[in-house]
Simulated scan of single mutants.
Amino acid sequence: MSSWDTPASKLGLVVAGIPLDVYSCANATKPETLVAVMFLLHGRMGSARKMEDYVHGIFKEVQERRRALPQGAREAQDLYIVTFDHRNHGKRMENKKANMGWFDDPEKNNERHAIDMYAIQTGTAQDVSYLIDFLPSYMFPNGERHISQWICAGKSLGGHSTWIVLRNDPRVKLGIPIIGCPDYLTLISKRAKAHKLPAGPPYIPDSLLALIKRTDPAASPYTVLDDSNPFLGKKILVLAGKDDKTVPWSAGKTFVETLNVGQRGVKEVIIEEGVGHEFSEAMVKEVAHFVWQHALLQ
């Protein structure tokens, strides 16, 4: 995507060995204004640094809406965006090949692709929950601001992690999976079939299969209307490219269409025509609009 203007300032933090970039509006409002914090998760082979253009794009859109508020209107909450390198990415890289997929080229081929990818996306989701525990103390040690809500959005692998966060962390009420998939078994089975590999051991070990069937978003009671449904009452924007071959919409379509967020929840789905596996500029605008409408104006 093209570079955007730079309407946000950046602060570097290290939380127990995890380096973070924390972005906030360069012209922040009054200290008593409530704060919404959004994690913006990168994709496989990506990094926190590679998300910076998207961060500024979101802030640009949000600031335009803030300036357009009529005089006397209720003040919108401030937005902070947090990015960090996922496990085995960026500054946390230990084994580059573990981020690779299945290839005919033995130099690139990662036989443990199914294992590594699930480990990284679930680990990233755990990191988000861990950071929610500690960020208020690191960001506002004197209680300077009050964090009213937590948001998670993510691209590709980060989109997979966003679905897991939405399932597992009740503190995250709003999520935006971007070109991600909530049904790992369907996604990885399609990928194995395309590479003429069995959807079983050693590529998908029985122990991994048991873990997926126990912990994946698609393994939850996501269609029911009682408290066992972890998505009930949550506000979710699903963004996908119609021509995506890497994470095809068909892999998560059934889940998304039957997902029940209840009367108090919000579910919006936008499948962008002519777009493949990318976080398009139109998607950036949709992220900003959804966050503005369903978080910052609350």
Rank of each mutant, 00 (worst) to 15 (best):
K235W: 03
F84M: 12
V37P: 11
A48F: 07
L13D: 07
S207W: 11
R66W: 02
V269E: 12
L209I: 10
I236R: 05
T254E: 15
E61N: 13
D244P: 06
G274W: 10
H89N: 14
A36G: 09
D85I: 10
L211V: 06
R145N: 06
R92P: 04
T254C: 02
Q298G: 08
F59N: 00
A210D: 15
P217W: 11
D104C: 01
R66K: 14
P19Y: 05
P202F: 02
A192Y: 01
I212L: 14
L208F: 01
K173Q: 15
R167Q: 14
P177V: 01
T33L: 06
A8N: 02
I81P: 04
V261M: 08
T186D: 14
G265H: 08
Q293N: 09
F103R: 09
A26K: 12
M117Y: 04
Q263V: 06
G12F: 09
R171S: 09
E32F: 09
P177A: 03
G180P: 11
L20N: 09
F140R: 08
V15E: 07
T246Y: 00
I179H: 06
I147L: 05
E32Q: 14
D116S: 07
R74I: 09
T215M: 08
R74H: 07
N99I: 12
P182R: 05
T223D: 06
P106R: 02
I204Q: 03
S228D: 14
V15I: 15
K213I: 02
E111R: 12
V247L: 01
A119R: 11
M93Q: 14
N109W: 07
F255Q: 08
V165S: 09
L187C: 04
G241Y: 00
A288H: 00
V37S: 14
A8K: 02
Q77M: 13
S189V: 00
Q293P: 00
I178F: 07
I179M: 13
P7W: 03
I176T: 08
A114S: 12
D133M: 05
I236H: 09
M283V: 05
V35E: 09
S137V: 11
R191M: 13
K213A: 04
K196M: 04
T258Y: 10
S280R: 11
D21S: 15
P202K: 04
D105W: 07
Q298K: 13
T215A: 13
E144I: 06
R44T: 12
R65I: 00
T122R: 12
L69N: 03
V269C: 09
R214E: 15
S137R: 13
D116M: 01
K50W: 01
D226H: 05
D244C: 05
N27K: 11
D133G: 06
